[in-house]
């Protein structure tokens, strides 16, 4: 997968130059794999992982390595007054430190934070690109038994040169055409928007075989969905602080019924199978840019 290797190379070059870098991908899009490669690239790497807003809030950063990999930077802010305090404090640490920082960001959290704060002044962003349908097929063939789709696999991986649709300038159009294709791997590629984690989930659940109802949400519901998409996993407590508390439970029930989110104890989790539908919907409502 050349595109993934290019992202890894960009991060390695940034480490060599001593530049701080933000590895950006969609949820389940492969940024953790890039962070793993960065960790193995050199000695003396420290790794910090934020797994919730509460954990990132007030975290005292202390490290002695030359390279610091910080995962889960999407938790460094919340959309409320004074919600940027953790990211401000983190940026201050980065600016004052001699270490090189490799940070990982959810692409929707990054797009927002880059406009609302100064993160893009401190970090150069490296995007983990989406995969082509042939790359998706190869990925799935290495992880699963795809013997029943062998013809489709051979068809999609036969031609090494990029097809016309893969050369289309607009990714959304490309994935739309792929979704309408008869080839299973092209369908999965379209449904996952070339996202490896989502493609795995779609393959496991065989959700390309089912037709889902289009989302129909109120603005409050859609904003709650946006928060879940940008955090991937978020506690009800955080949601209550940024979404209308009165309508939160109704919104979550509606999102859960639509299949876009699930629950893990007190946390609301983005379901990968419905990720592409959720993002398309948020784009149409202009909640992600």
């Amino acid at each position: 997968m050349d595109s993934f290797d290019e992202a890894v190379d960009s991060v390695r070059e940034a480490i060599d130059r001593g530049d701080n870098v933000a590895v950006v991908s969609d949820p389940y899009g492969g940024r953790d794999a890039v962070a793993d490669e960065a960790e193995e690239y050199t000695l003396g790497v420290e790794r910090i992982s934020f797994s919730s807003v509460a954990e990132a809030d007030g975290y005292e950063m202390s490290f002695g390595g030359q390279v610091c990999v910080v995962e889960g930077c999407r938790y460094l802010y919340t959309r409320r007054v004074d919600g940027f305090a953790p990211v401000k404090s983190f940026l201050q640490t980065v600016v004052e430190s001699d270490a090189t920082f490799v940070t990982t960001w959810n692409s929707y959290a990054w797009s927002y934070a880059a406009q609302a704060t100064e993160v893009d002044d401190i970090f150069d962003d490296v995007r983990v690109p989406s995969l082509s349908s042939a790359e998706i097929a190869e990925l799935l063939s290495s992880d699963y038994d795809i013997s029943e789709f062998l013809t489709d696999y051979e068809e999609v991986t036969a031609d090494e040169s990029p097809s016309l649709r893969e050369r289309l300038p607009f990714e959304r159009l490309r994935f739309g055409i792929e979704e309408a294709s008869d080839n299973v791997f092209e369908k999965i590629s379209g449904m996952s928007r070339g996202n490896p984690g989502v493609a795995r989930a779609v393959f496991e659940s065989r959700s390309w075989q089912t037709d889902d109802e289009p989302l129909d949400l109120s603005y409050d519901d859609a904003f709650a969905l946006y928060v879940v998409v940008s955090k991937e996993r978020v506690s009800r407590d955080v949601l209550r602080r940024v979404v209308s508390p009165d309508s939160l439970e109704t919104s979550l029930r509606k999102l859960s019924d639509s299949g876009v989110v699930g629950f893990d104890g007190d946390e609301v989790v983005l379901r990968p199978q419905q990720f592409a539908d959720a993002v398309s919907y948020l784009e149409r409502r202009r909640l992600v840019w």
């Binding site: 927002y112 406009q115 609302a116 603005y219 904003f223 979404v243 909640l287 840019w289």
Partner: peptide, 18 residues
């Protein structure tokens, strides 16, 4: 400033700041 940039209705881009 925080209330504006964190609003659920805000639109931010290089040409659309707060």
């Amino acid at each position: 400033r925080d209330a504006l940039r964190t609003s659920r209705y805000v639109y931010l881009s290089d040409d659309h700041g707060v």
